[in-house]
Simulated scan of single mutants.
Amino acid sequence: MEYRTHGDGAGTVVVFHGGHVRAQLALGEDVFTDAGFRVLIPSRPGYGRTPMTAGATVTDFADTIARLCRDREIDQIAAVVGISAGGRTALTMAARHPDLVQRVILQSSVGFLPWPDRRTRLGGRIVFHPRVEAVTWALLRTAIRFAPGPALRLLTRDLSLLPVDQVLAQLSAADRATLTELYASMRSGRGFVADMRPVADCTAHISQPTLIIATRNDRAVPFAHAQSLAAAIPQAELVESRADSHMIWFGSDYPAVAAKIRAFLLADHHTVCGT
């Protein structure tokens, strides 16, 4: 199994990335390391160098990560973080290992409502099929290299309910460059097709405090997923981001969202440490 660690804090946060991403692609980690935590990021099954055999189901992979943590002598995880399609893995791990996982943070997370929509499911099985996805991403990287503007429009269109020109106009030059570099580094492997399979709803077994962050402008994961999770998890708090798209880290209010994440983590840390 492929995984990466970042930071040197005493506490550990485990991040489950979203679709088309792997452990080597960093996104939104600084909020955790800046708060004094070490981050452990595994590539989920089918992504990067993690084979599908590392977790035939979300439940299996959650158990695999719990074993990895204990092998690394991590007896407490300050939070599991689920990003987009990785949200159900984070929730499943929290439900199955409440003695290990202290809190849950969900960012633009898929819940247990039907997902994705029919068009994405049918199209995704074709263009992101394991035998085809390398060609799909090679074509997209070529488009990004030779026509970055139109390519960014194409890739952003499915992430927002707002007009794509409006979304892109709000991005700084640095954010556009970061987002373009992220897209150019994506691969689907066998992971994305697996992500579209149903996962058993475990919300009734989530006892940990849970912070849910989502935006109503998200086309990739409808806001209803966040609402349903907030309604089902007893200690859940829903924070509504004002971001223009699924990529909440590029929203104008992300500094405030990041402050909320840090407060959520540090309150837990202080309680555990008795300070």
Rank of each mutant, 00 (worst) to 15 (best):
P234D: 05
A230M: 03
D195R: 09
I65F: 05
L100V: 02
H17D: 08
R187D: 11
G123A: 14
R125D: 05
R70T: 14
V101N: 01
G28L: 12
R153C: 03
A200G: 07
S245R: 09
R118E: 15
G7H: 10
L122Q: 08
A200N: 09
D75Q: 02
P150E: 08
G189M: 01
Q102E: 13
S172E: 03
H246L: 09
L106P: 13
A134Y: 04
D75R: 04
S185P: 02
D158N: 14
A231C: 06
G111A: 08
D117G: 10
G18W: 04
G18N: 08
S172D: 04
S185Y: 01
I212V: 13
A23I: 05
P255H: 14
A194S: 12
Q24P: 00
E2T: 06
R22H: 12
S245M: 11
Q208W: 05
D63R: 14
G87C: 02
R119K: 14
H129P: 02
P150L: 11
Y183H: 13
A267S: 09
I65K: 05
S172F: 00
L171H: 11
L211E: 05
L182R: 14
D30G: 07
A85Q: 04
V31I: 12
I77T: 03
P130S: 02
L139I: 14
L154V: 11
A95G: 01
V81L: 10
Q166I: 00
D63H: 12
H270R: 13
D268H: 12
L266S: 06
T120F: 08
P150A: 11
H225S: 08
A231S: 15
Q107N: 14
F146R: 13
P234F: 09
R262P: 00
P198D: 04
A90H: 07
